[in-house]
């Protein structure tokens, strides 16, 4: 089932909730190899986004909502993750265009554009121990699921699973971008906070899509 603006709004709300719930964990991860603000940064940003959701026009497209998320994150998060995640949503919004519904192809395009946006701004490569290490496996898995004929919910579930694995995979690595790169070998054994938060957000996407699909099937 193609996903509309209702899903995007649900996803954003679920993202805000999951970020708030994991705020302390993200702060702790960032304390270990960064500066201890990642959970606080995203919580501040997503809380601001949620506060703006009520103002959304009834006929807003998914792209318009994603753009609102982008500009709000950019203007409230700060730090490295603000511009990076903000750009992800901004480029995702661009890929969504004026469509009122996002099918599996569109979702893959949105995720790919989002990932490309992060790479464009942050210049990180896979294996640098950044959020890219959640996004790139997610994009690849989403595309594979789509190619295999998966539903929208299945595409997002594949993305979430891969992002989760990608975030976990960062643990043994040395970092080559972001603050953790200052630590050299001392970053080994710690999960990248940005990869972790991206995986949480993508899991929220999959969960809300699954819930919508279930509701539609029942209804």
């Amino acid at each position: 089932m193609a996903l509309g603006t209702g899903w995007v709004v649900d996803w954003v709300r679920a993202s805000a909730e999951v970020v708030k719930e994991h705020r302390t964990e993200l702060v702790r991860l960032d304390r270990e190899i960064g500066d201890g603000d990642h959970g606080e940064n995203l919580d501040r940003g997503f809380s601001a986004v949620v506060a703006k959701l009520d103002g959304i026009e009834a006929d807003a497209t998914p792209g318009a909502v994603l753009k609102l998320v982008a500009t709000t994150l950019i203007s409230t998060v700060g730090g490295a993750s603000g511009p990076l995640l903000g750009t992800a949503y901004l480029k995702g919004a661009g890929a969504a265009g004026a469509a009122t519904e996002l099918d599996a192809d569109a979702l893959v395009a949105v995720l790919t554009a989002a990932r490309d946006g992060v790479v464009l701004r942050g210049k990180a490569e896979s294996g640098d121990k950044t959020m890219v290490d959640a996004w790139t496996p997610a994009v690849d898995a989403a595309a594979a699921a789509r190619d295999a004929g998966g539903s929208e919910a299945e595409v997002l579930a594949a993305a979430a699973d891969a992002a989760e694995a990608g975030a976990a995979a960062t643990e043994p690595w040395v970092a080559r971008k972001g603050r953790a790169s200052y630590l050299g070998e001392r970053a080994i054994g710690h999960r990248d906070p940005g990869a972790q938060s991206s995986s949480l957000i993508l899991r929220a996407a999959a969960d809300t899509a699954a819930a919508q699909t279930a509701a539609a099937t029942e209804g």
């Binding site: 702060v27 304390r31 190899i33 960064g34 500066d35 201890g36 603000d37 606080e40 603050r179 200052y182 630590l183 050299g184 001392r186």
Partner: peptide, 29 residues
């Protein structure tokens, strides 16, 4: 101690120091 974190940015023993730190509570080299 970052106010919203409420805990020291890194744990360090009474007889240890960090060399090569930044200014954000990142541990040193």
């Amino acid at each position: 101690i970052v106010p919203h974190a409420g805990e020291p940015s890194f744990d360090i023993a009474e007889d240890e120091i960090e060399i090569g730190i930044g200014i954000h509570g990142e541990p040193g080299r």
